[in-house]
């Protein structure tokens, strides 16, 4: 058992490979999280224009990507687009797929946050002469973000976990490198290493979240 899953020799041999994967996962997260946040913010700001002609297509867009498995989106970009003469490479595909998918999730969260700020806040801000954008920027958004902080963090956790999909399109992140190491060594230890690394990396965030979520649900009453 130990021999198979926690083989010290193999750990030593696989460590440099797995470490490369870890750095790439961190790097990938640092790119796709801000990208998703940006996409979400754009969607939410557009949705705050209370015009049904804007709001309904946006809702459809968001629901479409919430219904669409991210892996399918990724495969579509990676394996489908070359038939149209567009070869983007794994990394670019991951970035675009995440922008569309996680952007929709972040968008819903930001929208809920903006909706949670009482209208009186905007009225007060506008009454002091702030423009609509200024009211949004200085009064509404800061409160909105604070109100939905647990959801934002929770989605960010999901996004970081989702970067493991990169392994399917040969992006050399943690899971991909671990599987490479596994196929070289004929031993599952590298995958166990990857799992342990994911756990150590994300456990603090999970702990924090479970505290915040408990409080948030209790506060809804």
């Amino acid at each position: 058992m130990i021999e198979a899953f926690f083989n010290i020799e193999i750990m030593k041999a696989a460590w440099p490979i797995v470490l490369t994967g870890l750095w790439n996962t961190i790097l990938l997260s640092l790119i796709v999280v801000p990208l998703g946040l940006l996409g979400g913010l754009i969607l939410a700001l557009l949705a705050s224009i209370k015009n049904p002609l804007v709001r309904w297509p946006l809702m459809a867009w968001v629901d479409f990507f919430r219904a669409f498995p991210p892996l399918v989106l990724l495969v579509l970009l990676f394996a489908g687009l070359p038939f149209a003469g567009l070869e983007l490479g794994g990394f670019a595909c991951v970035a675009i797929a995440f922008f569309l998918n996680t952007g929709s999730y972040y968008g819903e969260i930001f929208r809920a946050g903006i909706d949670s700020v009482p209208v009186g806040q905007v009225e007060a801000a506008r009454s002091t002469g702030l423009t609509r954008m200024q009211a949004m920027r200085y009064v509404v958004l800061p409160q909105a973000v604070r109100n939905v902080m647990p959801d934002l963090l929770s989605n960010t956790l999901e996004v970081v976990k989702l970067t493991s999909l990169g392994s399917v399109v040969a992006v050399p992140e943690l899971l991909y490198e671990a599987r490479q190491a596994q196929s070289i060594t004929y031993n599952p230890t590298p995958i166990v290493m990857a799992a342990v690394i994911y756990f150590l990396l994300l456990w603090p965030l999970v702990r924090l979240l479970s505290r915040l979520e408990n409080r948030a649900l209790a506060g809804r009453r």
């Binding site: 976990k161 399917v168 995958i191 756990f199 994300l202 965030l205 999970v206 702990r207 979240l209 479970s210």
Partner: peptide
């Protein structure tokens, strides 16, 4: 906590 921290794909592969 364990199953919230691990990416589903990692669990499947493992």
């Amino acid at each position: 906590d364990l199953f919230r921290s691990l990416p589903p794909l990692v669990i499947i592969v493992l």
